[in-house]
């Protein structure tokens, strides 16, 4: 037990948590935007996966930032596709989402096999690049906390810092700008903004595009920093966990960040635990985030029901 505690309170573990949280946080923010606009974006998983592969393949031929941007673009395009089918052609958004997931699961393996010349498992023989880490060693100049801060924060990806900024930006957008109010209004009760002359479908479409772009950015981070290179099904349910994290975070950007950090911590556990306790089956450790998501989901629903009862709605 002591080894575990020592590992967890070490700066190295904290750095690992930040690293594992970043893709999940971006997907969670994407899920949050879609959720607040009134759409459950079940396609986050597929959008991330396609973002991963796009970023990896582009990074073979172009600088890393172009690769990241193309991952973002791929996600945004999928969001647009989803909006087109769900809002323009009136398909059920859940079915559209699963169609995108199926497209991603098959399409990425197909494209990977073409790009690598037949390898359907990994992109190991592609020379893909990584996102550069940000050097913050100058922080160790700060007295007392300096060295700790530097150890925790140095070497994180550029995208991590973008993600941290996005949490603030999204909060500001949602709660301090008129468009944020529109978005929340559209998700809450679409008839009212419609009557007020707000372009409901446009707001919803943009929400899905942004949601997809965020998931794509998360995918790029996953395949160009957390792991360098693409592996079949490498998102491993992160997009679905993000849906749980949105609810656990009470549908608020800050809450969503805390929830994503929690799941990121479990991810980091899964990395350090096998080294500490080799009797513990890795399958059980990998199950933990999924079990936590179910618990989170139930606790959110109970809380929401209680809030409704308090307001006397039910």
């Amino acid at each position: 037990m002591t080894e575990l505690l020592i590992t967890i309170i070490s700066t190295g573990f904290f750095a690992t948590v930040i690293r594992t949280t970043t893709p999940l946080l971006l997907a969670t923010l994407g899920g949050l935007i879609a959720d607040l606009s009134g759409a459950l974006n079940v396609a986050l998983e597929g959008m991330m996966l396609i973002g991963c592969l796009t970023a990896v393949i582009v990074s073979v031929y172009a600088p890393w930032y172009v690769a990241v941007l193309s991952g973002v673009g791929a996600g945004a395009l999928l969001g647009l596709l989803m909006a087109f089918f769900a809002y323009r052609l009136k398909a059920d958004i859940i079915l559209v989402g699963f169609a995108i997931n199926i497209l991603a699961a098959g399409g990425t393996v197909f494209a990977l096999a073409l790009a690598t010349g037949g390898d359907k498992g990994t992109s190991i023989n592609l020379q893909s690049q990584a996102i550069p880490p940000v050097d913050l060693t100058f922080l160790s100049g700060i007295p007392i906390i300096g060295p700790t801060l530097s150890a925790m924060l140095t070497g994180q990806s550029v995208v991590t810092w973008i993600a941290a900024f996005l949490v603030f930006a999204i909060w500001y957008f949602l709660y301090r700008t008129p468009w944020g109010l529109w978005l929340r209004g559209v998700g809450e009760y679409p008839a009212a903004p419609e009557a007020a002359g707000i372009p409901v479908t446009k707001v919803r479409t943009w929400s899905l595009v942004v949601s997809g772009a965020l998931a794509g950015l998360g995918g790029a981070q996953l395949a160009m920093f957390n792991y360098v290179g693409f592996t079949r099904d490498m998102t491993g349910g992160r997009g679905f966990i993000a849906l749980g994290a949105v609810l656990l975070g009470a549908r608020h950007p800050v809450g969503a960040t805390i929830a994503a950090l929690l799941f990121g911590a479990f991810d980091a556990f899964a990395i350090v635990l096998p080294g500490l306790y080799n009797w513990m089956p890795s399958e059980l450790i990998r199950m933990i985030p999924f079990i936590v998501t179910i618990v989170a989901l139930i606790s959110f629903s109970v809380r929401a029901q209680r809030a409704l009862a308090l307001r006397g709605v039910q």
């Binding site: 699963f98 399409g107 197909f110």
Partner: peptide, 21 residues
């Protein structure tokens, strides 16, 4: 041609049939 191309076909069929397209 990798078999996974069928994923594209599946997705398009779901999209088209579940929408009014």
């Amino acid at each position: 041609v990798p078999a996974e191309v069928i994923g594209v076909v599946t997705a398009i069929i779901i999209l088209l049939v579940s929408s009014s397209f």
